[in-house]
Design a protein around this nucleic acid. Sequence first.
DNA 1: CCAAAAGTGTTTACCCTACACCCATGT
DNA 2: ACATGGGTGTAGGGTAAACACTTTTGG
Lengths: 230, 230
Amino acid sequence: MAPDLRLSAAVTVDLVVLAVRDDALQVLMVRRGTAPYAGRRALPGGFVEADEDLLQAARRELLEETGVRLGRAHIEQLRAYGSPRRDPRGRVVSVAHLVVLPEASVPSAGSDADAAQWQPVHDLLAAPRKLAFDHATILRDAAQRVEDALEDSALATRLCRAPFTVAELRAVYEVVWDQELDARNFHRKMTGTPGLLVDTGRVTTRNGGRPAALFRPGRTTRLNPPLVRG
Amino acid sequence: MAPDLRLSAAVTVDLVVLAVRDDALQVLMVRRGTAPYAGRRALPGGFVEADEDLLQAARRELLEETGVRLGRAHIEQLRAYGSPRRDPRGRVVSVAHLVVLPEASVPSAGSDADAAQWQPVHDLLAAPRKLAFDHATILRDAAQRVEDALEDSALATRLCRAPFTVAELRAVYEVVWDQELDARNFHRKMTGTPGLLVDTGRVTTRNGGRPAALFRPGRTTRLNPPLVRG
DNA sequence: CCAAAAGTGTTTACCCTACACCCATGT
DNA sequence: ACATGGGTGTAGGGTAAACACTTTTGG
């Protein structure tokens, strides 16, 4: 490395892994074993290796710390956090990533992974001081992005395990927005958006009542016009 | 700094400073004097200092490299760029920021600033290889964000020097979107959104014709429902 | 048959587009 | 007077909210 390059900081990736479980938006958290913030809950994450992309680092840390292998699941960069005092050990700039998994994905399994546990986002944000570093801020930003993304993107389809019914998709919206939606208008909106949902031709009665069509996510990624919150 | 902290990378901030000039969206670029990419155009930016926030670093670099002092102008983080080979000198993670200035702001003045020049975004994106590092990618992402932001935010009001007329605001949209808008419907939309524009009570005839009311940006930051592109 | 969930139809209200039209200035 | 841009009125179309109603299962 050239001598004029100042190695000014450590660079980490942090992961906000979200899924809907038990009618709540939940996040995968680990328990810190060492100082600083020993014993506190923290977002999974770690240092970026020398030859890694930020996204590659995020995938590797996710696997190492939680045992979750990212298949087709959604991942995107959230933003960078670089307040000088966010880590008492020194200057650490963290690039936070948002991962969205279908319901009922791996709760936790593996070596490092035993420490990983699902927690309701709402509970954690109600007691932000209990989280390590500035992870409450990161979590808040991630939750906000998901809420906003549901309005005009197909992100909700990534929170459902395929194949899913329209009602199951609606349940995701209702949990994330904490708001009831009209089942009939929602149905029209989703099935009426070309390319958003692909009908598998199969049906299910797992939710009771009349059999419901089963869908998988389609190619359309934008919801236009958006679905607006009350 | 604690010994277990790996100083894995240099952290920089890059700045995408945008303004509308001469009926085009333009960006403030500097000419690199030293290798790598000597002679190429690059986004202003530089290393983050030890005790600085990322936003503080962005403000400082903006002032140092371009002489632009950010008053009430809009600044936001765009995203982090961390490909391992984006800088041939070694591992450099850059956190890009988007700055939006009103038209006719400081072209260039000051010491370092002499190198800073306004360039049409469109021209630079047409020849991406002429830019240093991955700055064409960053510029493209920034331009995309501005285009999208005009749909549902008050960002356009920050691209106008206050006080401005509705027609001047519309000109911003037409330049950024490269699309003509109906002046009458646009007028209704903007003046009809509560809190978006504050009437100063003054008028101007600088654009000819009937005197136009002069506005300043209001408190409303969201445009709801959005203004959609054709 | 009844409950429950899926899906369709219909009404109403709102908003957007398109364009006719009037207003207030400079020349 | 007339050209130019500022601003308002209004008719038609499309989409969404609200809700009545039908469909298809399980018990």
